[in-house]
């Protein structure tokens, strides 16, 4: 918001300078050009950056908020059976639209105390292993899987590295590629890199209107490529990380409408909208032969990417 005020202020100055040039005949064109350039720089990616801010809004509904609003019942399950229970990912059985489903999702805390357990939704290896375990449980009984993505990224810490966070994400991705039950994933807030992807391999991928999904955070990208974290606004625009960008790029299947002003202004309405979309996609997938889903899912991802000189080949889809 501060930046918007700054832009407005600069635009006013710009108008004044132009007026001055016209009225007094003084040549202020170098200053005008400079100012115009500054305004253009600040305005660049305003939409993208604003959306990143909305996706991170402290009162934005979290996975548990949506579950409370969308599901008739949710029975949380815990632990990866390998020594940890990561609070940054919640998982369990739920009743949704009259049937049992499995839900996994990143969970952000609402305050510092909660975030001691939730780590702002930054999951460690135990989180991805828990998610993979419980998705496997869903597959055994043919329960569809709903994955709700909301993380700045996987947890960057010594312990996470010691317990092979990279391998845990890889395994979870690999697991999701072979599960026989329908998977619908939705980015509800932040879709931060590999940490998001670790539970994000679905037959369908939806995004809430003000969510973002990116290979790296705008700040991280700005630090590496611009050598300056404060250029995050430009990085956000360059990365094309908004829901509408990703729909244009053919990576997601649907943009889920949010109430005007963002999901936090009316969580009930946001949950109704998300629930309706999830249900519709689950119904569509429910009509398919379960044995065909993993092959179709893999084909979909194997077709992703844009190169020059040759188009990605189409793969004949195998069964299980």
């Amino acid at each position: 918001m501060r930046i918007d005020e700054l832009i407005a202020e600069l635009q006013e100055k710009l108008a004044e300078l132009k007026r001055l040039t016209r009225d007094s005949g003084l040549d202020a064109s170098p200053q005008i050009a400079e100012l115009a350039e500054e305004v253009a720089r600040l305005s660049l990616g305003r939409g993208a950056w604003e959306q990143v801010q909305l996706a991170r809004h402290p009162s934005r509904p979290t996975t548990m908020d949506y579950l409370g609003l969308m599901m008739d019942d949710f029975y949380e399950l815990h632990g990866d059976r390998l020594g940890s229970d990561d609070g940054a990912i919640v998982a369990g059985l739920a009743k949704f639209a009259g049937r049992t489903v499995v839900v996994v999702g990143h969970q952000k805390g609402k305050n510092l105390v909660e975030n001691r357990i939730r780590r702002s939704g930054m999951a460690g290896p135990g989180g991805y292993r828990k998610a993979a375990r419980i998705m496997g449980l869903g597959e055994r009984y043919g329960f569809p899987i709903i994955a709700l993505i909301d993380t700045p990224g996987a947890y960057p810490g010594v312990k996470a590295e010691e317990h092979n966070i990279g391998g845990a994400i890889a395994d979870s991705i690999y697991t999701m590629l072979r599960l026989r039950t329908p998977i619908v994933a939705a980015v509800i807030g932040e879709g931060g890199s590999g940490g998001a992807l670790g539970i994000g391999v679905g037959d369908r991928l939806l995004m809430m209107e003000n969510a973002y999904y990116s290979v790296i955070s705008p700040e991280g990208c700005a630090a590496i490529l611009w050598g300056d974290r404060s250029r995050a606004r430009e990085a956000a625009a360059a990365l094309r990380l908004t829901a509408h960008d990703l729909l244009d790029l053919g990576v997601i299947d649907e943009v889920v409408q949010e109430p005007t002003g963002g999901a936090h202004t009316d969580p009930q309405e946001a949950a109704r909208s998300l629930g309706e979309a999830l249900r519709r996609h689950m119904d569509e997938l429910g009509g398919m032969v379960p044995g065909e889903l993993p092959g179709l899912r893999r084909s979909k991802f194997r077709g992703m990417g844009i190169c020059e000189g040759a188009m990605p080949v189409m793969h004949e889809q195998g069964g299980e």
């Binding site: 890199s193 992807l197 999904y213 990116s214 290979v215 094309r240 990380l241 899912r297 991802f301 992703m304």
Partner: peptide, 18 residues
């Protein structure tokens, strides 16, 4: 990941696993 390809570079993680 190759950041300059944005979301497409992220998706290569799934593509190669597939």
């Amino acid at each position: 990941a190759r950041m300059q390809e944005g979301i497409f570079s992220l998706m290569q993680m799934v593509k190669t696993a597939a």
